[in-house]
Design a binder for these strands. Structure first.
Lengths: 345, 345
DNA sequence: ATGGAATCTGGGAGCGCTCCCAGAAATTCG
DNA sequence: CGAATTTCTGGGAGCGCTCCCAGATTCCAT
């Protein structure tokens, strides 16, 4: 591949290969109707010249940019405290690469950011589609505005208003219920929860699962056993401190990172995990196994989640069908030490 | 703003405002030579039609995509374990938004990823410039290849081969030396270090600073007091376990996250921080203050780092001058509890 | 007024590609 | 073996914008 290459165009390639621009285009885009020897010849020239089609020209002519946007709205604050987001981003980036799409990242911080970003998102010729991370109440507006643009859109996480939007999510409530049922089966009597913020659907859904599991077994719900965290380590720590006076013997935490913070609080109070307080977390990110006590947790396929989101979006883009559609991914309860299962059995 | 807007073009706007396409273009791009009343009239039409210029068309005509790429190469594995990367990404995203550039994110995982991504990066008409995170040995190749493309490039972190490349970094060695000198001044006798991996410039530079500080005070370097970690919590934990037999009374850890892991090991060994082993970390990410013992650490301006990287890159893009240039940002020693300064004074 | 400079405006020629269409070449079949 | 298909190829017409250039307007001295 010649290196300080002059900016060559399709026309140049065509000339060198002794064909027309159209034929060269067909070869480059793997269209079927090209004679084999001609294809080879053109491909050879492409190879040795190191020709790469001009992205903007292609986008203009084909009205497809081969770029998708990832918008992390309100969630930006969690982008740093909860490893969930980097993992999601990885899955999305990976899938984009796989499918030869470019990924444009939009981190919304302030309100002004949001304006600027929205203006960029709605620009024609830049993005073929958009994935918006949602679930937080504040994200609703940007989703609504994106829907209005009629651009292919997939929401990652259940949005507050989910009619009319394609989204992908896990069954948070069922997963949480599963986790809590596990604790009930192990015989714990005073099961508390560190819930996510109630201005998020994840927070709400997981808490709902907790409540449901207890109700199904005829247990009563004690408000003193429910504390709200904000999906941070510190949040989990403080929530646990609030819970401690109610003397819970088991906790379902709505995220691993909060579980870790909560266990810190438990330890500081001179109690032992899982002997005095058992734990089940949520996420099963690598950190789950790195604390002193291996965390029992709900495994959600975060990377896969991102990959699927991209696939669904691309399908919409390429088929032109953008009918709302929801996709729910499976989760799995991973039993380790923190729930005390091994000793209780 | 009319919503189900037909795809209007500059020509449409011009027609509606009773001017030519050229004049409309001038207004949209804030060129000076337009009479005030004409400008107002056109702006009015733009406003009420909700017109947005077509990104690809603009990119093709102006040969500028207003998009910059961020490449996280080998470092992708740390993208999840070290909050440094999300923070850096935030700074970069923020600055891009500020300057009205779109940010394209490229996470390199596998070797095939690298090929595909490189092909994308070197495509004309897609990116105006690129920021490559570097410092890891494996990143060298992609940097070399990017340099060959003659595209504006800024490397974040000192690359192994830094001639011929613009890069931005902090003075890792001076900062580390500063941290260790602080420990020396506090009277610690057996100061160890948990270094970063030796296939990274950050790891090397911080270790060099450690060595330098000790040498400057005429202290000898004990290999048994040096352990290598991999910038993860677990890595720090294991490195500390290896160091413990040498009975260090203070540790300089090359990152906060490793310091946290190391302190866990110390605690598990039944020792106290800072009484038995004092600590200084590196980064000062929010987590530094969230452990049981507040971490004394080197504060590096991570977000600012990203912002500056973007600014330097944009300067190169807009000036056309890509002469290699290095920028070194200042750091600061933040004294909290873990170094035991308060008790020793 | 009135020429000349300064400022504004419109048309044209691309930017590099895709995609449609018509014609050429190769293939099939009566 | 020629006519009817089928497959391949090239030219033309954009995609929506920028930017240069020339012509039209306005401005300001004289």
């Amino acid at each position: 591949m010649a290196n300080p290459m002059p900016d060559l165009t399709l026309e140049d390639i065509a000339k060198q290969a002794g064909v027309s621009r159209s034929t060269a285009s067909r070869v480059v885009n793997a269209h079927p109707n090209v004679r084999e020897d001609v294809r080879k010849r053109v491909l050879g020239v492409v190879e040795q010249t190191g020709y790469r089609p001009h992205a903007a020209a292609r986008a203009l002519a084909s009205q497809r940019s081969w770029t998708i946007g990832l918008v992390l709205p309100h969630s930006i604050s969690f982008f740093f405290t909860d490893p969930y987001y980097p993992h999601l981003t990885k899955g999305i980036a990976q899938a984009c690469n796989q499918h030869d799409y470019t990924l444009a990242l939009f981190l919304v911080g302030t309100k002004e950011d949001e304006e600027k970003i929205f203006a960029r998102l709605s620009r024609k010729g830049l993005l073929d589609g958009v994935i918006v991370q949602a679930g937080h109440h504040g994200d609703q507006q940007i989703i609504g505005r994106m829907v209005d643009t009629r651009m292919p859109l997939v929401v990652a996480g259940r949005p507050f208003r989910s009619d009319n939007v394609s989204y992908i999510d896990i069954d948070n409530s069922a997963a949480a219920s599963n986790a809590v049922s596990h604790l009930i089966r192990l015989g714990y009597q005073r099961i508390g929860t560190i819930a996510g913020p109630s201005n998020s659907t994840v927070g709400l859904d997981r808490k709902a699962g907790y409540v449901e599991a207890l109700k199904d077994r005829g247990k009563t719900i004690h408000d003193s056993l429910i504390a709200e965290g904000d999906f941070t380590e510190t949040g989990g720590y403080h929530a646990m401190q609030r819970l401690l006076p109610a003397k819970p013997d088991a906790i379902f935490a709505a995220s691993d990172i909060m579980a870790i913070g909560a266990m810190r609080a438990v330890r500081e109070a001179g109690l032992k995990v899982p002997d005095d307080v058992a734990f089940v977390g949520f996420d099963d990110l690598p950190m789950a196994t790195l604390s002193d006590v291996q965390l029992t947790t709900i495994r959600q396929p975060v990377v896969q989640f991102g990959v699927r989101a991209v696939e669904i979006l691309i399908e919409q883009i390429e088929s032109g069908i953008t009918a709302p559609r929801r996709t729910i991914l499976d989760t799995e309860l991973v039993i380790r030490e923190s729930c005390g299962a091994s000793r209780r059995r």
